[in-house]
């Protein structure tokens, strides 16, 4: 199969102005992936499936990844002359950087007709709170139907164009998205039948909060 850089060129030639970048994978297995912008995602997915050289007719795995905002400290080495002696000296500069927060949906594509793969594509949401929509690829691969529902259920990504977007593993009345990194499980310690020690303390605090008192 052609390398991803070449595939990216072909996609860009077909869809001018599309947002496609190659994301290298540092692990020894070398499964690099393509990050695809939301506007052209559906058209590019259709191209990947219908192109005779690729014919990625089989979408194996669909999953979500949560990337909350993190502070990354990057160390760069700069060579500058020492102010007193004038000899070059290596300085370490540390810069703090905030990573963007987004949710990511990863698709592993294979070809059953040509028996090659995987081509990994990733769609990213704008942020983690109000811009959580990506186009659904269920119209292209039916295999995404339940798996995208699962990503919607556990991560809170809304798929535009999904025929039946409901919760699938959690129950319908459930509010949160348990697979997010910052998910806090509900405080239902008051149901502990024989509460003691920490659990009893937590239960009393919870009861106090529920009754509107200061714990």
């Amino acid at each position: 199969m052609e390398p991803l850089v070449q595939l990216r060129e072909r996609i860009l030639a077909r869809f001018p102005g599309a947002d496609v970048t190659v994301l290298p994978n540092p692990a020894p297995v070398g499964q690099d992936s393509l990050v695809i912008g939301r506007e052209h995602a559906l058209a590019i997915a259709r191209f990947l499936r219908d192109d005779p050289e690729l014919s990625l007719d089989y979408c194996s795995n669909v999953t979500g990844v949560d990337w909350p905002q993190q502070e990354v400290i990057e160390t760069t080495r700069v060579t500058q002359p020492d102010p007193t002696t004038g000899t070059p000296k290596v300085y370490e500069q540390k810069t703090k950087r905030l990573t963007p927060a987004f949710l990511e949906v990863v698709y592993h594509l294979y070809s059953m007709a040509r028996q090659h793969g995987p081509v990994i594509i990733r769609l990213r949401t704008g942020n983690r709170t109000d811009q959580v929509a990506v186009p659904s690829l269920t119209p292209i691969w039916r295999a995404c139907e339940f798996q995208e529902r699962e990503v919607f259920d556990l991560f809170g990504v809304t798929f535009e164009g999904h025929p039946d977007l409901r919760r699938i593993l959690m129950w319908d009345g459930f509010k949160d998205h348990p697979m997010r990194r910052d998910y806090v499980e509900p405080d239902d310690y008051e149901w502990e039948p024989t509460a003691h020690d920490d659990v009893l303390k937590k239960a009393q605090e919870h009861l106090a909060r529920a009754e509107g008192r200061q714990p």
Partner: peptide, 23 residues
């Protein structure tokens, strides 16, 4: 493991069982 990701799959009796890991 060093940072990176991998998808490993085998032919299980019920079909393709795969694990996707990000380190």
């Amino acid at each position: 493991p060093k940072p990176g990701e991998a998808y490993g799959r085998i032919e299980g009796p019920k079909g393709e069982i795969g694990f996707y890991l990000i380190s």
